[in-house]
Each structure stands twice: as C-alpha cells, then as structure tokens.
Design a protein around this nucleic acid. Structure first.
Length: 226
DNA sequence: AATCAGATCAACCGCGCGCTT
DNA sequence: CAAGCGCGCGGTTGATCTGAT
C-alpha cells in the first residue's frame, strides 16, 4: 500500500557532508521549508526528503540552540514530561531553540538516569520504593525507606490544577523515616495557563499555548530538592 | 599506549494523521 | 468513502567520543 518514502538506491545515507549541508541551507534560504519530497531533487541532493527535513530541523536551522541544557531547561523538561509524557515535539516546543530529537536524547541519556538515581521512576514520575542510590533494603525492614520524599505539582491560583498531574506524581506516604533527608519535589506553576496544557493533553489535542502566552508562566527553576 | 565499556547524539525507520483526489 | 500522498512524530540504531583500567 504505502510506498517507501524514497528510493533507497541512489540516495546517500549516514552522516551529512559539509557540501550537502550547504546545498540544503542554500536551497531553503531561497525557497523556504516544505515540499520535502521534491526538495532533494530540486536542491541537487542525493538524499530522501525525510532525511533532508530531519537534517534541517535538528541541525541546520539557524535558530537552533546548541550546547548543554541549562538547569531551568532541564527542570522544565521534567515538568513537561510529567504532564505530557513522551510527546517530545510538544516538550521541545516549550524550549526555544531545542529540537524534539535533542530533548529526547537528553532525556534518555541524562535525565532518565538522574531520576532513576534519585529513586524516581522516569516513566510515571512516581517515587520508587527503593531509590537506586540507597540500594536494596534489608528484607526484614521493608516498610522503611531511607528517603522521605514528596512530589507535587501545584497551581498557585487553584488547587484543581493539582488534580490529575499531581495525582500520579504524589507520594503521600513518607515512610517511617530513618534519614533526615526530606526531599520536597514541589513543582509550582504560577497561574492558570498551565491548566490549558493539562486539559489539552487530556483531550489528546496536543496543541499548547502560544509563545506569547509562554512568557506569562515562564517558571524559574523547579523547586526540586530544596 | 592499548583496550574496553559506557555515554552521547545524529540519523534512520515505521507508523499514524490529515489533506487531497 | 476509500486510496494515495506528504509530513511529522516517537522509538531505535549505530557510529563516535570519553573515561577507566
């Protein structure tokens, strides 16, 4: 039924050369983005359209921000992942200059591991019973955990904002504490626009608020690990 | 200096969605 | 209404880099 996106014979694969990059940049500079299927031929590239699109979006676009993720970007990714799940393009849309591929890679290589080390399940953002760095507990004392930890999502103007997102983020039963390490993983949203995200994600319409609205609720660094 | 293992990230692949015919 | 097409997305792969031994 579906034809392959490109004829695999006669197309280059693998890493892009500088010349190929330049051809793609030059072509898009003149003709703009779009029509990816016909672009390679028009631009004189022996690549499939998909590959051109990916290369442009993830690497060549002038507004790409490269380099390490800042702490607030990382926090925002965690926060948005808790709300949206693996919808990388949506998450990346909230991070100016970052691409879905970059966010996804960063999540898989850095954040996921970090959360696991902290004893948080990166898939559902729930606290695992046995934090990784603490190690398995003595089977005879399985009600005890070494870390008391709270994880919340809250909206400052309305407690309802906590509802769904928080319900699966919260672990309200800190065990009979052994350690005095109290990790309050509070994620605070200053006002209602975030509710739009929650509602929209629930409705499966993935579209999120505009860039202008973003400014209204740009949250500083998460209140992680105070 | 050589080797190995783990981490990182660019690129590929398959699928689903929406639009057009 | 069904089929075809183009595009975008998320998962996965594999080459390269980096640090440890």
């Amino acid at each position: 039924m579906r034809k392959p996106c490109c004829d695999k014979q006669g197309t280059n694969r693998g890493a892009w050369s500088k010349q190929e990059d330049q051809k793609l940049i030059d072509y898009i500079r003149i003709h703009g983005e779009g029509c990816w299927r016909s672009l390679p031929k028009a631009a004189g590239l022996h690549r499939c359209g998909k590959s051109c699109r990916l290369r442009w979006i993830n690497y060549l676009r002038p507004d790409i921000k490269r380099g390490n993720f800042a702490q607030d970007e990382e926090d925002l990714i965690i926060k948005l992942h808790a709300l949206l799940g693996n919808r990388w393009s949506l998450i990346a849309g909230r991070l100016p200059g970052r691409t879905d591929n970059e966010v996804k890679n960063y999540w898989n290589s850095h954040i996921k591991r970090k959360l696991m080390k902290m004893g948080i399940d990166p898939n559902n953002h729930k606290l695992n019973q046995y934090p990784h760095h603490v190690g398995p507990l003595n089977p005879t004392t399985t009600n005890s955990m070494d870390v008391a930890c709270k994880l919340k999502v809250c909206s400052t103007d309305n407690d309802d904002g906590v509802s769904d997102a928080a319900s699966y983020l919260e672990d309200e039963t800190p065990p009979t504490g052994i350690s005095n390490l109290d990790l309050d993983l509070t994620i605070a949203f200053p006002s209602s626009p975030i509710k739009n995200i929650i509602e929209e994600s629930q409705q499966k319409t993935a579209s999120i608020v505009t860039n202008d609205e973003e400014e209204q609720y740009k949250v500083p660094t998460l209140l992680l690990f105070r």
